[in-house]
Design a protein around this nucleic acid. Structure first.
Length: 814
DNA sequence: AGCTGTGGCAGGGAGG
DNA sequence: CCTCCCTGCCAC
């Protein structure tokens, strides 16, 4: 078995069959990339070159071996086994090195019997019809290994390969709409103007409807894909725009799209499940033997874990990540029709530029997923689509399968506790340190050896330890490496490990996790709370002043005798030494000033005068641009104690609003659509949901909306308390010459924003600063800002105006 | 068809 | 007015 190892093993003995998630593939059987069913009785295994003794062909080619057949005892639907003996409860495992299907068996050791049943072709619906399962009958789920292979892996397993070594093709469509609005593949007048393709070897091609009919373009497109034979097809909005459009147009023109490696058609998995009437707009797509990667989905995942993306437009993303060097003038959807008539080359150039941007975007966002595909038993496509809890579970399951051990059911119930969060001081404070406990939850789980009670094989702990060790090793190697490419690859590797490592805690509390354990999840959070409280106590014991704490870190003012970075580090070290071994506190940031507003809501000014704002009440994508700017500039003024600036800003904005001296982009609200219109309507009719402006405005404007779309609207009507869902219009409908936005409402919005700052002033002063009533002139000299306010631990942040009931005042100058 | 967790704030709608 | 419930978005 050890002969097949390609990398040096980390602390493993030769005899140990211990499973390592990162060095997976120690068993020759795990090198299987495909199984082919030759006849009813004969099955051929495909394995990677060099991985199994006796396999001969050239490097990189798939070779075959008749030597072994490895049966898999997995099941896709837990429901099927309800009432079945728990000991034999097994779950599906699908992946790049395993293939989907197989059987649950009353007698676990009967694998050859299982094979016979597989080859005899049982199927799920027949079993369902039978209504019960006899003790000895296996349950067969997927009888077609060849198709499964093609669907999942293509000809490459990707193991040991880099993202650059596999063949990726980028795809972009330019579509035409007669109406000038968003084009619609269902309308016969609309059509595909150009199909642009590139790949990671520098090849580029545009299929152009001036030279070819749409029909010819689609045929040519299929030909090109089959000829290039890519492992991966990448596109922006691939699943929501390009593929539905292609499928719909091909359907209208009665053209097949045999894009699969087995020449199978582009596959639709329609949620409605009616194959006669495919729902192109809602379907999921698949191409046999290739992986479909949507860069918009990648961007979406990115913005969930690391904030900062305003939307997911390709052009915007290229600029955000800084690789769109020489972009052609952007043509909006509305302009395509006219541009196509006057300057078709502009449209073609844009199509090609889109492809290059897609590749750059993918190069930037996909590597960590690619590394996961080499580690987790899922196809690359599934790795991108899937969540991290599923990946952890599959890795644990792989070990259970390997040891032929039965698998538990999820525990019913719910987690009881979460993280500790508190705010102790609100107001503006100087000289701030930010410290956090490194990898809090994973460290707790490792040091206290937390594991699910149902994990009899201890796979959870070993997996966590192994992934952590590998990550530290990768980080160390990254810091040593001088090769930029290698550093990048190692960084992608370690970050993909980080994502998985951080999900172990979440998995414990996951209601659908097979190995979930709510008690252990509570144990982790309780320990986390205790550790953070310990740090808070230690800081206060040493005369530091804690401002805010959240989950694994805190902001505080160090004691007077700690001056300068060196002493600060020493101070943090002292705090850290009060923690158990294996748990470390680290300096995470130093700041000149902090504006503390509420729990999870604050602003920081660093020593280079850069401002960071955190928290949904201070910064949010849904805030109108004017509110966002107003809050941001106001916070800056507050931190600089520029009272005059605050007042001037308020008055000038008030005037702008009153006189319509602004653009719709300044005051529209932009919301992300999460549900389809059907789901929304269902919620309304069931009464489980209230009318929401974004959906209502889209409905009235006849706009087609899908999840992830962003809808911009503004409020109309003539008093501040109108029902917004009934009084709003699309931002596009606003006309500067006939401004019909609800001025009273927007002035009230401005005042709502201002009220966030009332805690910094005495009520009378607040009224003077945030008012245009300058009858006697405005004099900032008489207005002092309030000092930071200390809240006792049990108190909530102030909800209203009565300041006097809260706590004591801090002395200034600490 | 997919699906890691809790805690927290703001704002809208509906009904008292 | 207030309270309750829901959604959206955010921090960790």
């Amino acid at each position: 078995m050890s002969k097949s190892r390609k990398r040096s093993d980390v602390g493993k003995t030769e005899s140990s069959a211990e499973y390592d998630p990162v060095l997976y593939g120690q068993s020759p059987l795990e090198h299987v990339v495909a199984v082919q069913q030759l006849t009813e009785a004969s099955v051929r295994l495909y394995v990677r070159e060099g991985s199994v003794p006796g396999a001969k062909d050239a490097i990189g080619r798939v070779t075959s071996s008749d030597a072994e057949f490895f049966p898999f005892f997995f099941l896709s639907s837990p429901v099927l086994l309800d009432g079945y003996s728990k000991r034999f409860w097994i779950k599906e495992l699908a992946g790049s090195n395993f293939f989907r299907y197989l059987v649950a068996f009353p007698r676990w050791n009967d694998m050859w019997e299982a094979i016979r049943f597989i080859l005899n072709g049982y199927n799920k619906s027949a079993l369902k019809r039978a209504g019960h399962f006899s003790e000895l009958e296996p349950l067969l789920i997927k009888p077609d290994p060849v198709t499964q292979y093609l669907l999942q892996s293509g000809t490459t397993l990707f193991k040991g390969l880099s993202l650059q070594e596999i063949h990726r093709v980028q795809l972009s469509l330019e579509t035409y709409s007669r109406t000038g609005k968003r084009s619609d593949a269902r309308k016969t007048d609309d059509r595909i103007l150009a199909i642009a393709l590139t790949d990671n070897h520098g090849w580029e091609e545009i299929l152009d409807s001036r030279k070819l009919t749409e029909e010819e373009m689609l045929r040519r497109f299929v030909h090109v894909i089959r000829e290039r034979n890519p492992d991966v097809i990448e596109g922006h909005d691939l699943f929501v725009h390009s593929l539905p459009y292609l499928a719909r147009r091909a359907d209208l023109l009665s053209i097949e799209l045999p894009l699969g490696r087995d020449e199978s058609d582009l596959k639709l998995f329609s949620p409605r499940g009616n194959p006669l009437e495919p729902d192109f707009e809602r379907a999921m797509f698949g191409i046999a033997g290739r992986h479909l990667i949507d860069t918009k989905a990648l961007a979406h995942s990115y913005s969930i874990s690391r904030r900062g993306l305003e939307h997911y437009g390709l052009r915007y993303l290229s600029q955000y990540f800084g690789f769109s060097t020489k972009s052609p003038p952007a043509i909006t959807n509305e302009q395509i029709a006219s541009a196509w008539a006057d300057q078709p080359n502009l449209v073609l150039a844009q199509a090609l530029q889109d492809c290059r941007d897609i590749r750059a975007l993918s190069d930037h966002l996909s590597p960590s997923y690619f590394f996961q595909a080499r580690m987790v038993p899922l196809s690359y496509e599934a790795v991108v689509r899937g969540g991290s809890a599923a990946k952890i579970e599959l890795m644990i399951l792989r070990e259970y399968i390997r040891q032929k051990h039965s698998v538990p059911k999820p525990e019913a119930g719910a987690q009881r506790t979460g993280a500790y969060t508190d705010v102790f001081i609100i107001g503006i404070v100087e000289n701030i340190l930010h410290a956090d406990i490194e990898s809090l939850y994973p460290s707790i789980m490792l040091t206290q050896e937390i594991k699910p009670a149902s994990d009899e094989l201890g796979a959870f702990q070993r997996l966590l330890l192994s992934l952590t060790t590998s990550r530290l090793d990768a980080k160390r190697r990254m810091n040593l490496s001088k090769n930029e490419n290698e550093r990048g690859a190692l960084d992608a590797f370690q970050s993909s490990l980080k994502v998985l490592i951080n999900s172990f805690y979440g998995y414990l509390g996951y209601p659908r996790g097979l190995f979930n354990d709510y008690e252990q999840a509570d144990c982790v959070t309780a320990s986390g709370q205790e550790l953070l409280r310990t740090i808070i106590r230690e800081v206060e014991l040493r005369n530091g002043k804690v401002i805010e704490a959240d989950t694994d870190g805190l902001y505080f003012v160090p004691p007077d005798n700690v001056r300068g970075e060196d002493q600060e580090l020493v101070f943090i070290d002292k705090l850290s030494s009060s923690l158990p071994s294996g748990i470390n506190l680290a300096l995470a940031g130093r700041y000149k000033k902090m504006l503390s507003y509420r729990k999870k809501n604050y602003a920081l000014l660093d020593h280079k005068n850069r401002l960071t704002i955190k928290g949904s009440s201070l910064i949010s994508r849904t805030l109108e641009r004017f509110s966002k700017n107003y809050i941001q500039i106001s916070i800056n003024h507050l931190l600089q104690e520029d009272i005059q600036g605050l007042h001037t800003l308020y008055v000038s904005l008030l005037q702008d609003i009153s006189q319509h001296r602004w653009d719709v982009i300044d005051f529209c609200r932009t919301e992300t659509i999460h549900d389809s219109m059907d789901e929304y309507d269902l919620g309304l009719s069931e009464g489980s949901r209230k009318p929401a402006a974004a959906y209502e405005v889209a409905r009235r404007a006849g706009l087609l909306i899908k999840p992830l779309d962003r809808v911009a609207y503004y409020v109309t009507g003539n008093h501040a308390s109108v029902k917004i869902a009934g009084n709003c219009k699309l931002a596009d409908e606003w006309e500067p010459n006939f401004p019909d936005e609800n001025t009273a409402y927007y002035i009230e919005r401005l005042n709502e924003c201002s009220r966030k700052f009332d805690l910094f002033f005495e009520p009378e002063d607040f009224k003077r600063v945030f008012s245009a009533d300058d009858l006697f002139g405005f004099n900032p000299e008489n207005i002092r800002m309030l000092k930071p306010r200390f809240l006792s631990q049990t108190e909530a942040p102030p909800a209203d105006d009565d300041a006097s009931e809260f706590g004591i005042w801090l002395d200034e100058g600490n």
